[in-house]
Amino acid sequence: MSDPEILFGIYCPPHPQPLLTPEASEGYGRLRDAFETCRKRIEESEADLILVYSTTWPSIIGHQIQGHPEPEWVHVDDDFHYLGSMPYKFKMDTEFAEKFRECAESRGLQSRTVAYDGFPIDTGSIVALKLLNPDNKIPACIVSSNMYANRAETIVLGKSARDAIASQGKKAVVVVVSSLSNRMFTEHIEPAEDRIHSAKDDEWNKKILEFFGDGRLEDLSQLSREIHGQIRVQKVVAYKPAWWMSATMGQHNNYTGEVLSYEALHGSGGAVVVLTPSKGSVGDKEFDEDDVEHYHGDRGVLDAGSL
């Protein structure tokens, strides 16, 4: 199978402020402008698929892929309900969704498409698709983030996406919806006074953005466990978006990286980043974690140890 054609990748935050209240602070407005830049880039590209991996769509039964052709609802965020409602109607590439499921299963993953009226599409996916593809010019696909999945499973999921893109000959834009540091303030704040929750979070975010700016996506993937320990609230087992993004985009550092915006979103780190495949490589490291092609499930460590 030939390599998939991935035009570029976008890393963007899930919070609703850039969509609902961009005027509330200069920072939210700059994030909105960055989304707008990405929207234009997508429209000017030859993309025929927007593939979204959202960290705010957790799944348990394997990896869920949105399979409804036109999901429609009015969504309200659990925390930021007072900012307003988010009506949406999206156009999904259902044939791609089925192919993605098939490719995931062929690599050993549990996966299923979901196509139910009223299915609750998550805040992050809604924010991304409404800002990046407001007129549904390009069909999209959304995949969940399994709450128990760790590195091997997430990398294999990325490779499955790659298989599906290649097999259908799509020209894809890959979108990862995730904050950087994800610790928010635990009380209500004035948007104009928003800032990153701590200096440590801010420093780590800037280090990550330095890597993004240099196009060092695989290096970030290799650093995921460290990032999770340092600046991620321990809601799930790992910081997975860099694993999935790198695996989907080819596991290398050959990108032109552009950090379009970096701002606080109720204390968490929100950045809009574009990674465009290029020639050459920066900062190759000795990658010390296994590359994995097929997911075999949990290893029976206790059983093996008792032999």
Partner: peptide, 8 residues
């Protein structure tokens, strides 16, 4: 209508 995101 409430649709369970995990067990729709």
């Amino acid at each position: 209508k409430s649709v369970d995101p995990v067990f729709p």
